[in-house]
Amino acid sequence: MQSSKKIVVLGHFGVGKTSLIRRFVTDTFSDNYKVTIGVHITKKVVEISPDDTISLILWDLEGTDDIESIRNAYLLGTHGVVFVFDITRPSTFQHLNNDLKIVSSKIPNVPFLVVGNKTDLVAPSELKSVFDENNISVDFFTSAKTGDAVNDLFSKLANQLVSDA
C-alpha cells in the first residue's frame, strides 16, 4: 500500500534546504546557489517495508529570516516538518527555540525534525558548547554536500509518519 504525505522543509535563507532535498531525491549536489522563490515541490517514494511504501511530497519553502512571515496557506494540511539551520551561521539558530515555537503553533501535532546542516564545514562537536548554552536540541546533523545523514533524516520522518497513521 502506498500513501502520500506532505512534508514542509523550512528555515532561514541559505541554510541548505533545497540542497538537502536535492541530495535526498536525486543524490546530487551543486555549489551553484539559487534562491528559492515561493515554493518548489518534489517527490520521493520511500520504502518502509517490502510491502509498504510512502510517497513524500516535499514542499521546499523559500527561506526567511522572519519565520512568522511564512505564508500560512503553504502550511495547511502538512503531515511532517523539517526545520533546517546552518551550523556555521549563528544567526540561523540563535533564536531557534523561538522559531520552533512559532512553527509548532502554526502546524501542531505533526512529526517535527530539527536539522543542523553543513557538517562538512564545521564538526558539530566543536559547537556543542554553543548549542548547550542556548538549550538547543538537534535531531540530525547533516551535510547536503557529502550526503552525510540525509537519507537517515528522511527515513526517520517517513517511519514516524507511517507509525502515526
Partner: peptide, 13 residues
C-alpha cells in the same frame, strides 16, 4: 502527485 502539489501551491498563493 507533483502537479497536484504545485497546483495547490499556486492556488494557495
Amino acid at each position: 502527485e507533483m502537479v497536484s502539489g504545485m497546483l495547490t501551491a499556486i492556488k494557495s498563493f
